[in-house]
Design a protein around this nucleic acid. Structure first.
Lengths: 147, 147
DNA sequence: TAGTTTAATGAAATTAATTATCAACTGACG
DNA sequence: CGTCAGTTGATAATTAATTTCATTAAACTA
């Protein structure tokens, strides 16, 4: 889990600033159940509900900053917009199986994938931020009811 | 490699039609070097160059159809739009390592990933169309020159 | 092979997500 | 406390992608 201090340090190390808006957004993601991912729009709606005055611009900017710090992961699943979720530790880290017909999305954990991914990336001199295996296919139900 | 007949059969099986536009677009992807991926815009430009009268709507529609048939793979890499490439056989199948700072993209092959992905998907009753491992990180060069 | 049906196409209008702009504000740091 | 530079909010602008609909043409059938 990210503490306020950890977020502050991570931002300041990069010359970025620790703001109430960024903290609030991180806290919302931390409060979500494991595996739940939100769009920018959904996050904004939640902020409005909570009477937080954070603009849509700031929402988008914060999502980018936190993704580039490796705090959040940006998911491109079936929908036509991005989703974000907390980038959890390896044992809680998961991947996605997506039906291209009905958009059903199933999460699964397979630690060997992360191990191999990290190994590959490090071999190329990369500092890894996120490792995503996306499997696209047709679910059992859609195979029986085509179209 | 896809023959005209194979494309026609695959389309007709699903109640879809074999059209000159779809064939032409498949042929273009088949002519690209391994690993080269194009956006809808780039494909359209190529078609205009070749004096093919295919509309942008048809380009988008064809890309979707072929992705859902498993003929093409839809990639969401560093750029802000999708890229497409031929979905090649497993030994030529590759994954992507992307620098979130400079957008450098490196391809790599790791057959074990595809093996595990297929196993997982089949265990859930899925018919697999594509398996994509995306690794996001910061390349060696960007680690030295932050920002 | 002509006739019927229904999917596909092209052109234009439209949508939705995301990004850019810029003046005002406020963290970080000395 | 004061300065500097990054951040914010409001709005405008952009861009990729989708929808609409009249027309065209594959696929199938008699």
């Amino acid at each position: 889990m990210y503490s306020d201090e950890l977020l502050k340090n991570q931002l300041n190390e990069r010359g970025l600033r620790f703001t109430p808006q960024r903290l609030k957004i991180l806290q919302i993601f931390q409060s979500l159940p494991r595996g739940e991912h939100w769009s920018a729009e959904e996050l904004y709606t939640k902020l409005v509900e909570q009477k937080e005055n954070i603009s849509m611009s700031t929402v988008y900017r914060t999502l980018h900053v936190m993704t580039n710090l490796g705090i959040l992961r940006e998911l491109e699943l079936a929908e036509d917009h991005k989703h974000y979720e907390l980038n959890r530790s390896s044992s809680e880290h998961h991947h996605h199986l997506i039906c291209v017909q009905c958009n059903q999305t199933i999460e699964f954990t397979e630690e060997i994938i992360d191990y191999i991914g990290n190994k590959q990336a490090k071999a190329m001199g990369y500092h890894v931020l996120d490792c995503q295996l996306n499997l696209y296919g047709i679910c059992a139900s859609c195979q029986q009811n085509p179209q």
